[in-house]
Design a protein around this nucleic acid. Sequence first.
DNA 1: TTGTTTACAGAACAATCGTTCAGTAATAAT
DNA 2: ATTATTACTGAACGATTGTTCTGTAAACAA
Lengths: 229, 229
Amino acid sequence: MDAAAARTAAATPASAALPASPASPARRGRPGYDRAQVMTIAVQLFNDQGYDATSVADLAAKLGLTKSALYHHVESKESILAVALDDALTGLERALDDAVAVEATALASLRHIVRGAVGVLTAKLPQVTLLLRVRGNSEIERAALERRRAFDHRVTALVREAQSAGDLVGDIDAAVATRLIFGMVNSLTEWYRPGGAVDPEQLADDVLRLSLGGLECDPDGGRAVGGSL
Amino acid sequence: MDAAAARTAAATPASAALPASPASPARRGRPGYDRAQVMTIAVQLFNDQGYDATSVADLAAKLGLTKSALYHHVESKESILAVALDDALTGLERALDDAVAVEATALASLRHIVRGAVGVLTAKLPQVTLLLRVRGNSEIERAALERRRAFDHRVTALVREAQSAGDLVGDIDAAVATRLIFGMVNSLTEWYRPGGAVDPEQLADDVLRLSLGGLECDPDGGRAVGGSL
DNA sequence: TTGTTTACAGAACAATCGTTCAGTAATAAT
DNA sequence: ATTATTACTGAACGATTGTTCTGTAAACAA
């Protein structure tokens, strides 16, 4: 596929980047991609092929542009990764802040953050997917991994607290339980796709039932899932 | 780090590749790495940095060799990936064959394959880790993804059968349940390390309790985990 | 000593990597 | 018509990519 063919293939760039865009109110200069659209498509491609396996030439071809045109919208390849990772991490951190602020008990906060994480993951799927694949190959990636570790530690503390309160069984290591629960949650990036047959709310219910169903001490004896939240 | 320094750092290659090697009985030619050792270290490095982010020069430096020396042991970079992926897939497929051959009911087979998958994952951690990160960027990767899909479908059929038999709750989609369960299992590659504090057997117990604990219909009413297996 | 076997180095290859720069093109506001 | 503003092209850059070729080095067997 030569440049002209690629151009034709991406003849309507806005539709790909902004599905059902709310009638953009006539921007100033020459029509074309803007920064946000380029970012969106870039992150999608990074997820399809992997960040390292995606060249700037690949991205330019996908957009129907030359490589140099890309650098009008974006400072570098890695800067695209940086903002996407920050987006994902900010979402997760806010959800955790919410969970501990709103709920009274550690178990309730835990249920809340599992729901919240599923919500962030489905809402910001491309960014979170990118985050979960980071290996620490650059300073930016290492910083993101550090924020992820801090998040995990806070959740682990919640699990431990719920165990101490007697709301969660105590014969499983809190760190192991946390990793298994979020392993299940994070695995959603591998197959969940928005607009598919699976509803995000229903999905959060299922995840909670599988991940916490075998750990709760159910003082009320009830096996119903949605009962307490 | 120049070539000489790298050489010194990897002065005892055999110890890194073959921990506690059973007194290799004096091979023929010039001493040095053999194919298996190179493969082992290569897969380790692929896991550390990601396959695409690891250059042949990186691997050569890690081994304390030149790039050209590498091609004496291995046909290509991708061939290393190919044998590792085949190794992981063969292990998983055998575990599944075992599970359906040995057990009588679908639920028992399901428990068996979850245990088996944890076993293969911990025993062949580097190869399975590599498998789970494949994105389908080449013919070899796409073939591996195809074998993985076939594996998933067979397990999903087990879940559906256990639901039909009344051993598993029916109000959750079999495909979703399978993906969540194996999402939890596969997430072990992110943190489990052999020789660490966590025992593989205990780990399999924990995974089974979390992943299936909330789904079983427990006809005997018992909540004990290791009871039936 | 003469082969055989295994393991390595050095130099070079075309291709691709991410990035820069100087100029051009197309719109809206004035 | 002029000016801003925004979007893009084409050519080139040094560096790195995976791979090949030709020759050498070090062990064991005959």
